[in-house]
Amino acid sequence: MAVLEVEGLRVLRDGVLAVDDVSFQLAAESDTALVGPNGAGKSSLVGAILGLIPRQAGEVRILGHRLGPAGQLPGQVRAQLAFLPQALPLQGRLPLTVAEFVGFGWDPPGPRLPWIGGAERRSAVRSALVKTGCGPLAERLLSELSGGQLKRVLLAFCVVRPRRLLVLDEAQAGLDAPSTEQFHSLLFDLRRSEGWTVLQVSHDLDMVRRSCDQVLCLNRQLRCSGRPELALSRAQLERLYDPADLPSHPRRQAPMGRPRIG
């Protein structure tokens, strides 16, 4: 069974058609990149899949369950979903430690008394922090983290309970090259060990070529899809991007390896 099925999806954003008649499926444990120029509707598509933006037409099914018109999903299905935004712009405002934040990732959706399941929660948080190399950061405030550390903490937030589908919206934005590399190595390892199905919006076509199984090229409509070596050919990219925005040729880099966590 596909983890995510999208069929004939149509999304309006501020009255403008952002996504038109998009259909695709994500197989279990696959890693799919969503690429396209700025304003192509990538974030709108992700928002509609997560139920954050209403859709005008089409169907979204997650783990076989239909996403309701206002983003409704059964609690046990919603708990299988994780999302990594580009940044947490308000992270500096909250006096929130890394351990406290990751703990909220463990809590299931819905009302709950904070002291219920305390021991199990603490153990899950410790384990998630170790898996992502964030153990030493547990008592640090979110405001005290570097960009790379925050991304690892966000991954800990996702990995603190078993999940099936992870959606990333330009999660590597704002990171320098070593941090980006480290983040993707960690994501690569976690995807394998946790059995995640990944859908990631990305502008980093080098990374997409090296780590993703499938590419979806979006410019309001799905322009092409398939394995990276085919979907990201020069000819396909020229059709997808304006000549001025066309990404440069890929750099030659080693395949993803073990994370280097510092």
Partner: peptide, 21 residues
């Protein structure tokens, strides 16, 4: 108390909160 997770996530990032139910 019962909505502490929701309150914190809504304060931190509305879309992150929405995606996590």
């Amino acid at each position: 108390l019962v909505s502490l997770r929701a309150q914190v996530l809504v304060t931190l990032h509305a879309d992150l909160a929405g995606a996590f139910g």
